[in-house]
Design a protein around this nucleic acid. Sequence first.
DNA 1: GGTGCCGGGCC
DNA 2: GGCCCGGCACC
Length: 459
Amino acid sequence: MATKRPGEKTSSSGPQSCPSTAAGPTDTRQSGAEIQETLMYMQCCGQEAPNMTESNGHRNIMNRNHQVPVLVPRGRTEGGWTHPSAPQQTTTPTVPSCPVSAPYSSWSPGSVEMDEIMAAMVLTSMSCSPVVQSSPQSQNDPVPGPSSGGGDMECGGGELSDSGSSGYWSWDHDNVSPALSLSVIEMDSSPDEGLHMELEQGVELNVAKRSKSSFRGAYRCLWPGCGKVLTSSVGMKRHVRVLHLGSGSEQSHREEDFYYTKFSCKAPPALVPALSSHVPWVSCGSPPGPGPDSGLQIPSSTSSSPSGSGSSRPSSGPGSAPGQPSPLSQSAPSSFRQIQTDHLYQACTPLQVTVSCRNPTPCCWTPPPVTVSNQHSHHNSQVVRGRCRSVSVGEQWLQQNSTTNRQTTMRAASPSRSHCSFRKGRGEAKKCRKVYGVDRKEQWCTACRWKKACQRFPD
DNA sequence: GGTGCCGGGCC
DNA sequence: GGCCCGGCACC
């Protein structure tokens, strides 16, 4: 995936849209124009992009928080932001044409930094909207696929990637609805920030509505003594920026992410118990369970979520198949279903399976449902007959009367099918072998002689 | 390893 | 259907 996005980038809009406004990239040479280009890209790719121009310390923070940068193209994120000192290879044509890391790697920090900051400020003052509007894919490509959702999110990343910097829940946003990308792009094309925020909020609500469940995040201000809770990340950012950081400052514009966190307001009912506590699953990696897998690819390099498990995760991950049969199975972890599956496999009665496993009683020889009863009775008689087939009539009758009960009781505690290698435990009854011994084998019952179930001394 | 016996092959 | 046995689970 990480390789995919850059590829898309190079071919389509993301990087191209940025450089289109700046001087053509000359790769190895880091000219001022490229500085602007880079900064332009950073600006248009997310509000916190300019963050990277900040001191290393802060950048590190950003990097740390950007373990799952959703809307930022992977190539840049990994090659550039997470590794500010990344070599200039990031500027090679193989990498999207907006190498973020280039400025840091090749400039002398002293002299260039001012230009950089100046450029950043200029570009910040310039709304990113023109750049975004110039992005052909973001507007021409209505497909909200990963390409548009990931790379072209440009300013959409302002909201979403900001969220990403404050936690991984940005994935949630991204996963919530691919259509979000389009909406956000449209929204971001508006230079009016106020309207932008309003729209964004609306988009968020729509996203929440559209999301598979009724999940909706709230944002809590982490500023000491504040604790304000808002439903919009933008609102929260504005809150932090205005009230705590001071509006207008570019730095505050970036730092606001660190002063709020998102927590789950409302989770799917089945997941509520598991997620009830609070932020944790929001902030500890990708959302539990690949449930939000929905075609979105989690960056392998950045996301250290132990999802595998699948799955793992309350939503059972891979287990969180769309067709959840029942609320019980929905709420149950995937392991539970796995157990069921194993049990089914061992039971190996296709029809019984569904019935027996949903019943508390593990085995269905108790009152079998109508649909199964025929099979059971048939099977039962089959078993008895099979056992009696080489026995005399009297013995057969005896055996049927005796062993049927025995088997019935015994099978009540075991899978039903005879071919499921059901083996009753060793009974206390002596068998012909024990009674007569091997040397008097002729006195054994025929069943014992034939290595069948003893008919003379049934359990 | 002994025992019980299921499953299946042979006639 | 009668007879037999390989193979497995249990002890």
